[in-house]
């Protein structure tokens, strides 16, 4: 970070030919820690796992690990993970958009708006183990809502088939951080919808629905998709909430991988790497789908 005292000298002298290179060095010196860090803790570990997925116990190139993913148990895990992630991302995105539209376009009081934004910041980070505790206290067998529904309305949600340890239980729990995340990410885009656009549409005879159909939603669409893919990846990789909620009873991919790493199951490092590779491929796919669709949708943007 030290600059050579040269910089002052060159004010009076003809710049030495070596000076531009010196400056370049300083710039790269500033960026270097970031690059090294990214390589060591993001790129290399990922690439290592990806390559390990194709190496057998004997050190030879093999597709056995990938083939090993195609068992009923593992496929079922992927399927339920995808379903939970897609459902919680989809509902979270729609609900988050609805709330954002309500506070910004529905002109709720400003104080309410800033309260919701702050709360969203908190709730989107309130994931993991404590969130699981909160939902057990709410919708668990002894949860407040469960008890109140039984006592006041004589509705036993557990007898009706609900279980906090199930697909819908987990989805409902994930929404607690998915919706706020959506609100935080989509609010700038909704703010960017100019009032003049809807006014112009109105003077041209468009109903409110026609405005949203032809102008409002198409403009929000790329941001919506981008956030949707992030929400999907967010849920797909989440493990702490599920683990604290269900132990290892719910068979989702991260829990399977967790058990594999802990050495509780499978006992096959190559298969573990293949599991991880599968997760990367799926979250990457979600993002590639987003990039492709938004590139088409964004041809009107700079």
């Amino acid at each position: 970070m030290r600059a050579p005292p040269q910089s002052r000298r060159t004010m009076t002298e003809i710049p030495a030919p070596g000076r531009p290179i010196r400056r370049l060095n300083l710039e790269w010196l500033g960026v270097a820690p970031f690059i090294i860090f990214a390589v060591m803790f993001l790129i290399l570990p990922t690439l290592y796992l990806v390559s390990a997925a194709f190496v057998g116990r004997d050190g030879q190139l093999t597709f056995d690990n990938i083939a090993g993913l195609f068992t009923d148990q593992i496929l079922a895990a992927y399927w339920i993970s995808i379903r939970i992630s897609a459902t919680s991302a989809g509902i979270g995105a729609i609900a988050g958009l609805a709330i954002t539209l309500a506070i910004i376009r529905g002109r709720l009081p400003d104080a309410l708006r800033s309260a919701i934004m702050t709360f969203s910041g908190v709730a989107s980070n309130f994931a993991g183990v404590p969130l699981a505790f909160a939902f057990i206290s709410t919708l668990g067998r002894l949860g407040l809502v469960t008890i109140i529904l039984k006592a006041l309305f004589d509705i036993d949600i557990y007898r009706a088939g609900f279980n906090i340890l199930s697909f819908w239980g987990l989805t409902l729990t994930y929404l607690y951080f998915q919706i706020p995340l959506m609100i935080l990410m989509i609010a700038p885009a909704v703010d960017g919808l100019k009032r003049e656009w809807s006014e112009a549409a109105q003077t041209l005879g468009a109903s409110s629905w026609q405005f949203w159909r032809h102008v409002g939603f198409p403009i929000l669409w790329p941001s919506f998709l981008g956030t949707l893919s992030l929400l999907f990846a967010n849920a797909f990789g989440a493990i702490a909430t599920a683990y604290a909620l269900t132990g290892s009873s719910l068979n989702i991919v991260p829990i399977l991988l967790y058990a594999q790493i802990r050495g509780d199951a499978l006992q096959n490092p190559g298969l573990g790497a293949a599991l991880a590779l599968g997760m990367i491929v799926i979250t990457a796919c979600a993002n590639i789908i987003y990039l492709v669709i938004s590139a088409r949708a964004e041809r009107w943007m700079r």
């Binding site: 993001l42 390990a52 790493i261 997760m279």
Partner: peptide, 24 residues
């Protein structure tokens, strides 16, 4: 490149990263 790199932790699940660390 910076934008891309800083987006990666949101796409690569933490459990995958830590597994990579443990192995690497």
């Amino acid at each position: 490149l910076m934008e891309f790199i800083t987006l990666l932790p949101l796409i690569i699940p933490a459990i995958v990263l830590v597994y990579g660390y443990i192995r690497l």
